[in-house]
Design a protein around this nucleic acid. Structure first.
Length: 258
DNA sequence: ATATCTGCCTGCTCGC
DNA sequence: TGCGAGCAGGCAGATA
């Protein structure tokens, strides 16, 4: 916060989702960051004229502020960087090239379709009814950013395990009790993960380059064949709408026996 | 409206 | 040791 942009450089054109680079250069020139925030998985830098510089890291993206002569500017995975008044640079580094940056006049154009924030979710009866009519697998529902914002594959699997719900259950078949347990489990998992500063898997680092620690608390994600921490049954992996999905076949029954 | 699939990408792991 | 295949996954866009 408090820094001003003086230039914009894009090395991998697709990184810049909108608008064209010439326009970014003109509209960003001299603008000051007055606040930073987040919506779902989108990072927000609010500027002093109402615009928002938005970044999505996807899988491997990293944002950092470095000195203007930092070797990171020459790194082969650096996709874009923004010169800051005073000589530093805000660098977007992303080996997989999935990450995206927007300069939005209206933030809603970028994040308008996102569902509610799970940790600040005042679930209305209308929301609840609409969601619970859906016939998709509940795992797919958790990953749908228009239903609830910010949940990715790891925390979806962990939430379903803690709630004792099979990932293939159709959302429309969940009982009130199950829906309530899932809602609680999701918030619990996210709060714990935030407290542990995230999950170190392959690429993730905190904004300060440190590792997160939630990987030590994962109960099913990536644990294929290992004993369930609750019942000892081997954890299984299946695919649900093209996503690798981990669960305990004993604690998370697809069909409830009577 | 809803549900599902494909393409985008590179680095890493695995098996031969 | 070298090499290719397979895998990881968030989202846009296409298709059913």
């Amino acid at each position: 916060m408090g820094r001003r942009f003086v230039s914009a450089t894009v090395l991998w054109p697709r990184t810049l989702a909108m608008p064209p680079l010439e326009e970014v250069e003109a509209r960003l020139q001299g603008r000051e960051v007055i606040a930073v925030g987040r919506r779902g998985k989108y990072l927000l830098m609010h500027l002093d004229d109402g615009q928002t510089l938005v970044a999505h890291l996807r899988m491997t993206g990293r944002l950092s502020i470095v000195a203007a002569d930092s070797p990171l500017l020459e790194d082969k995975h650096t996709r874009a960087w923004f010169g800051l008044a005073g000589g530093d640079a805000l660098v977007f580094n992303d080996s997989r090239k999935f990450g995206r940056i927007w300069l939005a006049e209206r933030l809603e154009d970028v994040v308008g379709k996102l569902g509610p924030e799970p940790l600040a979710w005042d679930l209305t009866p209308e929301d609840s009814a609409r969601i619970r009519r859906r016939k998709v697998a509940v795992k797919a529902l958790l990953l749908d950013q228009t239903v609830v914002a910010g949940v990715g594959n790891i925390y979806a699997d962990e939430s379903l395990f803690r709630a004792g719900i099979h990932p293939l259950r159709k959302a429309s078949t969940l009982t009130d009790a199950e829906a309530g347990r899932l809602y609680d489990a999701l918030r619990e998992v996210l709060n714990e993960a935030i407290q542990k500063r995230g999950t170190l898997l392959r690429d993730y680092r905190t904004p300060y380059g440190e590792d997160g620690y939630f990987q030590n608390d994962l109960r099913v994600y990536g644990k294929v064949g290992m004993p369930c921490p609750r019942c000892g049954e081997p954890i299984e992996r299946i695919r649900v709408t093209q996503r690798s999905t981990h669960f305990c076949p004993k604690c998370q029954k697809e069909l409830i026996e009577d």
